[in-house]
Simulated assay, not measured.
Amino acid sequence: MYSERTGEKIDTIYWIEGDYIAEAIREINVFMRDWRNNQMMDIDTRTVDIMAASHKLLESSEPYMLLSGYRSPATNAMLRSRSSGVAKNSLHLKGQAADLRLASRSVSQMARAAAACKAGGVGKYSSSNFVHMDCGAVRSWGS
């Protein structure tokens, strides 16, 4: 996974034989921080699991581009003021969501893979070329 905004890259094994690796989870928390103000929150590992399972289903060697992971309340409020598509109580605020892109896969392909996991929310944002994945209730939206 890499961040277009910060230029950072992460390629780490975070889980082995049923156990999360604490060091890797810390690295993920740093990587998925709010890049606008460097605030961090523990990222829900269920979201990371959905991202990993979806990526495996896509059979892609290309890393995800992370557009948004954790969002601080200030960042979420700023984004809400600019777009009606940003939820007031977004799961990004809880470290339970990620907005992702793959150059080699369409939004529809990514959304189908995430939905196949039947583990959380999947939002298609075709006009912005990204998919939202979260570990909340199973649901889908967008076009």
Rank of each mutant, 00 (worst) to 15 (best):
S143W: 06
M40D: 11
S68V: 11
E62C: 12
C117V: 01
I13N: 11
F31H: 02
E17H: 01
A97E: 02
M65W: 09
I28L: 15
D34N: 09
S140W: 07
A114Q: 05
A24L: 02
G121N: 10
R105L: 01
A87N: 14
L58I: 06
C117L: 01
A103G: 03
I43K: 03
E4T: 12
R112H: 04
L67R: 14
Y70A: 06
L91Q: 09
I28T: 14
S60H: 05
A113L: 02
L67G: 09
M1Y: 15
I16A: 04
Y64N: 10
G85V: 05
R36A: 04
L66D: 13
L91K: 04
V86W: 12
L93Q: 08
R139L: 01
E59D: 08
N129Q: 13
T6H: 10
N29C: 07
A103L: 08
R80P: 02
R139Q: 00
S72Y: 06
A98V: 10
W35L: 10
H92F: 06
S61H: 13
I10L: 15
Y70N: 02
G136T: 02
S128W: 10
Q96F: 05
L79S: 11
E4Q: 07
E23T: 15
D19C: 07
A114T: 03
G120K: 03
S143C: 00
F130L: 11
M1H: 15
A98Y: 01
N38Y: 12
S126N: 11
E59F: 03
D11V: 01
S84K: 15
K94V: 12
P73S: 06
S84P: 08
D42N: 10
L93R: 04
A53Y: 14
Y125L: 08
A137C: 03
S83W: 09
P63H: 11
G121P: 04
V30L: 14
K88M: 15
R26H: 05
T6N: 09
S127D: 12
D42P: 04
I28S: 14
A74H: 09
A114M: 04
G121M: 09
R5G: 00
C135H: 02
I50T: 13
V138G: 00
L102C: 10
A22D: 07
C117P: 02
L67F: 14
P63G: 08
A116H: 01
T12N: 02
R101Y: 01
A74C: 10
K88R: 15
V138N: 02
H92L: 10
N129H: 10
R80C: 13
R33K: 14
T75I: 10
G85A: 15
D34P: 09
G18E: 05
E62G: 05
Q96V: 04
Q109F: 00
A103F: 07
W15R: 13
V30R: 15
S60C: 12
A24W: 08
Q96N: 08
E23W: 07
T12M: 10
A114N: 03
A114H: 00
G120D: 01
A53S: 13
N89E: 15
M65V: 14
G95V: 05
V107H: 02
L93I: 11
I28F: 13
E17L: 05
S61F: 04
Y64M: 11
